[in-house]
Simulated scan of single mutants.
Amino acid sequence: MSLIETAKQNGIAPEDYLRCLFEKAPYAETENDWEKLLPWNIEITPYKIRGEWI
């Protein structure tokens, strides 16, 4: 099963999951950090507008 389908199974909107994943993945260094990014472990944070698109 893909991460998208797993997110859906865990009641997470795929777009919210991917946004949080892409925001947090650059900071993952250990195996434990990566496990925290799986759909059943990740903490979905609210979207914050951070500026204008160029």
Score class of each variant (00 low, 15 high):
39 P>T: 14
38 L>G: 01
51 G>D: 04
53 W>T: 00
16 D>V: 01
20 C>G: 04
8 K>P: 01
36 K>A: 15
23 E>K: 02
8 K>M: 12
54 I>E: 11
35 E>T: 09
52 E>S: 06
13 A>W: 02
47 Y>E: 03
24 K>M: 07
38 L>A: 11
52 E>W: 07
3 L>R: 14
46 P>F: 02
38 L>V: 05
29 E>W: 08
25 A>W: 03
12 I>Q: 10
48 K>N: 08
22 F>V: 13
42 I>W: 02
5 E>K: 14
9 Q>N: 15
29 E>T: 12
31 E>L: 11
38 L>Q: 05
32 N>F: 08
51 G>W: 05
11 G>V: 04
16 D>E: 14
23 E>W: 01
31 E>Y: 10
36 K>Y: 10
44 I>D: 05
52 E>I: 08
9 Q>L: 15
21 L>H: 05
48 K>H: 10
10 N>A: 04
47 Y>F: 13
28 A>C: 08
8 K>R: 15
43 E>G: 00
3 L>S: 10
14 P>K: 07
44 I>E: 11
7 A>Y: 03
13 A>R: 11
18 L>G: 04
13 A>F: 08
48 K>G: 03
43 E>H: 02
10 N>E: 13
43 E>I: 06
19 R>H: 04
28 A>L: 06
32 N>A: 14
24 K>T: 05
31 E>M: 00
47 Y>L: 13
36 K>L: 15
24 K>L: 04
29 E>V: 01
44 I>H: 02
17 Y>L: 09
4 I>K: 14
40 W>N: 07
50 R>F: 03
37 L>H: 04
4 I>P: 06
49 I>E: 11
6 T>E: 13
20 C>Q: 03
5 E>P: 09
2 S>D: 15
3 L>Q: 12
46 P>Q: 07
13 A>T: 11
3 L>M: 12
22 F>P: 10
9 Q>V: 10
41 N>A: 05
26 P>C: 05
33 D>E: 08
17 Y>M: 09
7 A>V: 01
6 T>H: 13
35 E>D: 14
45 T>D: 00
28 A>T: 08
49 I>P: 07
8 K>D: 06
33 D>C: 12
7 A>F: 07
43 E>S: 01
19 R>E: 02
